[in-house]
């Protein structure tokens, strides 16, 4: 679907899990579509932070660490839905028993540090939203949090965002589709980034360069 939409780089960032990343990377390999491994962690403050990593190994190591701080609460499928793990042929491999829709017991700085320690980039997810966004939960970016970028969702205009949050001008601003289903995976919901090649290293180089002229939101 991503390929049909003409996307040239996607990231898989499930909530508190990386269980489906490997399968999607395999499919991406077969189709020639680069897939970046990632995770969306819900911190103690109910802030959603995205970690995008250089390799599958890195995201799995990060996931292992996060899971040490994910309370052992069982999922209730009738309320939260099944937490299904698929293989690269779209067959159900199993499901995750522990509830993923909850906060880990680590704060934003701890999660940010762990992402960095695993070689990843840290992006504050959907910061324009009242709930689960860094600004909504914590009011402003804590001085001690190292952020590589902030993300606004597809419903929010960049101009309005910059107008309301001038202090965030120092971070690269991305817009991602945050697609939870295939129908949301729309080309125009994502940012255009001018990078050497569609890879993690090139994306990281862009975010660290602070050269925001190379990011275009539509």
């Amino acid at each position: 679907m991503a390929q049909l939409e003409g996307l040239s780089l996607i990231a898989i960032t499930d909530h508190n899990t990386a269980a489906n990343v490997g399968a999607v990377m395999q499919v991406g390999d077969q189709l020639g579509l680069p897939v970046l491994p990632g995770m969306e962690v819900q911190t103690r403050e109910e802030v959603h932070l995205l970690g995008i990593f250089p390799s599958l190994e890195a995201v799995l190591a990060f996931e292992q660490l996060i899971w040490q701080h994910l309370p052992k609460v069982a999922n209730q499928p009738q309320i939260f839905g099944e937490q299904i793990v698929y293989d690269s042929a779209d067959r159900q491999k199993g499901s995750i028993e522990r509830l993923l829709l909850q906060s880990v017991t680590l704060g934003v700085e701890e999660v940010g540090k762990a992402i960095t320690a695993h070689g990843g980039v840290t992006i504050a997810a959907h910061v324009n939203r009242r709930s689960y966004g860094l600004l909504g939960q914590l009011g402003f970016v804590p001085e001690t949090l190292k952020l590589d970028a902030v993300e606004i969702d597809r419903y929010f205009s960049y101009e309005r965002f910059m107008d309301e949050h001038q202090s965030l001008g120092r971070y690269p601003v991305l817009r991602n589709s945050d697609a939870h289903q295939l129908i949301d995976l729309v080309d125009s919901h994502s940012s255009v980034v001018l990078i050497e090649e569609p890879s993690f290293l090139a994306l990281r180089e862009l975010l660290l360069s602070g050269d925001v002229g190379r990011i275009r939101l539509r």
Partner: peptide, 8 residues
Amino acid sequence: SDLLSDVM
């Protein structure tokens, strides 16, 4: 409130 933006 637990939303700091709201408190602000």
